[in-house]
Amino acid sequence: MSSASPGDSFVPARGSHRARSGWSRPVIAVLALILLIGSAACGTEGGAVNSGQAGPTTAVIPNLDPVPIGPEPTPVLPSTVRSFDGADVTVNSADRIIAADRYGTLAQTVWALGLGRKLVGRSTGGTFPAVRQVPNVTGGSGSLNVESILALRPSVFLTDTTSAAPAVREQLRAAGVTVVYFDPQRTMAGVVPQIEEVADALGVPAAGQALAQRTTDEIAAASAAVPEQEKPLSIAFLYLRTTAIALIAGPGSGADALIAALGAKDAGTAAGLKEPFTTITSEAMISAAPEVLLVMSDGLTSVGGVDGLEKVPGVAQTPAGRTKRVVDMSDTVLLSFGPNTGRVISALSDAVYGPRPA
């Protein structure tokens, strides 16, 4: 596509009749309009582009807060549920809820169920605007802090079996905390069942069913609106926390499921990676050869933005690195796989392929 700008002049070949007699004004106007449209479609150097062909862009959800399904429901308790660790757990009160997992999914779900007022503790991953003043029970390393949990006197603690290490589970059990564990796997198929499981544990199954249906509908609509491609794009998700922690995602990371929802292929999985996350090497990046790089916004900032990302081993040698085709999205929602999932797919689709025509 032409990269001419509206200020460029069209000069006919010397000696031609048209050069001597001049172009008609209507023809010149049409040519100028074509050049203007072509320049706009190709984007501007170093900026985001709408065509989805090159350059960095940010996938944006206007409001990161999950939308409550309705007014605050009244829990019907006690309820006995099967925890993911295999135990049957009876929840007697939902007055003081701590919801803490790596990506903030459980806190988002509690909020979307309409029980946000009862949320007294969250994880670092649960940082959407509405709960920023809610105490954080995870330390600097992202691990759960048992003392912080106990200090908040939770009536029920929601977490998953990855966030709570075995030693933490033993401490919570010894302290008599009512804990319900959930599946830590990030899959599209698991989004709706987990919403219903959280609702059942908190004694609000009707709100859970309504939220599950809304989430199902939003995911279906967002997936259906993803533009069809003759050849699936190759997208790699990179987990970045300064250049000291730079990982490429593979099977089971959750990013693979999100990329599939965009009608694309996960570059890490296609390159033969076996683990959910693998340390980035030049060989791994060049072998994956992604056309698009997907990252969390804070992670991208931690390496110095797009220019800093290109200093990560192998990135500059990939198709995505050469075109700076980088899509970032808020850490709060990108891999949350909760009630915002449909909105995440829609925003990523717009960022990767360009906004849909109005």
Results as ranks from 00 to 15, higher is better:
residue 356 R to A: 14
residue 232 P to T: 09
residue 82 R to A: 15
residue 51 S to N: 11
residue 16 S to R: 15
residue 34 I to K: 14
residue 345 I to V: 12
residue 176 G to H: 06
residue 338 G to S: 10
residue 263 G to D: 09
residue 335 L to D: 09
residue 265 K to H: 14
residue 28 I to T: 13
residue 155 S to T: 13
residue 208 G to I: 05
residue 48 A to S: 15
residue 195 I to V: 14
residue 5 S to N: 13
residue 216 T to I: 09
residue 309 L to Y: 15
residue 268 G to P: 02
residue 45 E to C: 10
residue 335 L to M: 08
residue 253 S to R: 08
residue 108 Q to Y: 03
residue 190 G to N: 07
residue 29 A to D: 15
residue 200 D to R: 14
residue 251 P to N: 06
residue 319 P to K: 03
residue 305 G to V: 09
residue 296 M to I: 09
residue 258 L to Q: 01
residue 69 I to V: 15
residue 113 L to Q: 11
residue 166 P to K: 03
residue 239 Y to W: 07
residue 80 T to F: 03
residue 15 G to E: 11
residue 217 D to E: 14
residue 87 A to E: 15
residue 231 K to D: 14
residue 328 D to I: 08
residue 238 L to A: 01
residue 190 G to R: 02
residue 171 Q to S: 10
residue 332 T to D: 12
residue 123 S to K: 02
residue 261 A to T: 04
residue 103 Y to G: 12
residue 105 T to A: 13
residue 53 Q to Y: 15
residue 244 A to E: 14
residue 190 G to W: 07
residue 109 T to N: 08
residue 340 N to Q: 14
residue 130 A to H: 01
residue 265 K to N: 14
residue 171 Q to M: 11
residue 156 V to Q: 05
residue 150 L to V: 08
residue 36 L to H: 11
residue 304 G to M: 02
residue 173 R to C: 04
residue 67 V to W: 07
residue 138 T to Y: 04
residue 279 T to I: 03
residue 335 L to P: 02
residue 209 Q to Y: 04
